[in-house]
Design a protein around this nucleic acid. Structure first.
Lengths: 169, 169
DNA sequence: GATTAATAGGACCGCATCCGTACTGTATGT
DNA sequence: ACATACAGTACGGATGCGGTCCTATTAATC
């Protein structure tokens, strides 16, 4: 059966997906370590042009510090604990606006007759908040059973499951 | 200056955006009320074909109940308080998987060398959880100052602002 | 100073897919 | 019967992501 839109529209871009992988890789080697785009590409098994492009963007957005010339490379601008997921997303995908009308007033011609604009902004804030509580260092903590990030969110995964059940009727 | 990818990729589809508006409109009239696609389209000032398409999807996903024939229309299958945002998103945009590797193992050929897969799944769950705490009735509550959904999340918006500042360096 | 290695910035295009429309079929009330 | 309204599908245009390539600039090394 068809759906109104695609199969899975609510996603981050592949560039951002890769970007987080790259940042995690760099962070794993220590906050001050230096990495050339080539090295990172080799070790993550991602195409060099893509890696290069992403690292350049992250540098321009202030998340990485670049060192040009021979023996150059990239290092974290701040410590991994100070880099949050929304910062990474914003750097690569642009500001987090789940819908057009969640961003700013004036974006939608139907604003006057629409009663959902302000709630959308709240939803947007809720998502951004949830993500802001997860830092790059959380992403590289290698304790498999750890649910520290979720606990800090006050998350009870049982509720999620329950809601999903109900959603499926 | 260019970016690695577009200006704002992390968004819901327009169909889902509309879908929430439509559901909110229907819910506003009361849980049992009946609405034809034409009426909803007229009142929300959205194109009828689009509205029709979305309502059909929502029906098939179990969020609306349809009544065919003359004097037919759509009504909520459940009360507005029992319909959550992730259910709406899932119905129209498909399951919430922020990235490919957040969905299921085997989707990414680089799984073996990737240390970020499990954290991505946690991020995904965090977002879904945050959204699951917001119901359709929250969206139509017309109390402008209400931050009940945010409070239930334990959200402190000052932290978000601070993080955003830091992100911009 | 020449050379090499590495980042900076941007141009370009194929391809996927979202968005909206149109059309046929089926059910229901008058 | 007829009109109304939903069900399901097919289809095309436009947008923009995903990935590559090229040139300029900067820094270390010999």
């Amino acid at each position: 059966m068809w759906k109104a839109s695609g199969v899975n529209v609510f996603r981050l871009s592949r560039i951002t997906d890769y970007g987080i992988v790259l940042m995690a890789h760099i962070a794993e080697q220590g906050d001050g370590s230096l990495h050339s785009a080539r090295d990172v590409a080799d070790q993550t098994e991602l195409p060099l042009p893509v890696v290069s492009k992403i690292l350049k963007s992250l540098t321009r957005e202030g998340l990485l510090r670049s060192h040009r010339g021979s023996k150059g490379g990239y290092s974290l601008e701040r410590s991994a604990a100070e880099i949050t997921v929304p910062q990474l997303i914003t750097a690569l995908d642009g500001p987090i606006h789940l819908t057009e009308c969640a961003s700013h007033s004036g974006a939608c011609a139907k604003e006057a007759s629409c009663h959902v604009r302000e709630p959308w902004q709240r939803i947007n804030a809720a998502v951004e908040e949830a993500l802001a509580r997860i830092t790059l260092s959380d992403l590289i903590s290698t304790t498999p059973g750890s649910i520290v990030p979720l606990i800090s969110l006050g998350v009870d995964t049982r509720e999620l499951d329950t809601a999903a059940e109900k959603g499926r009727g």
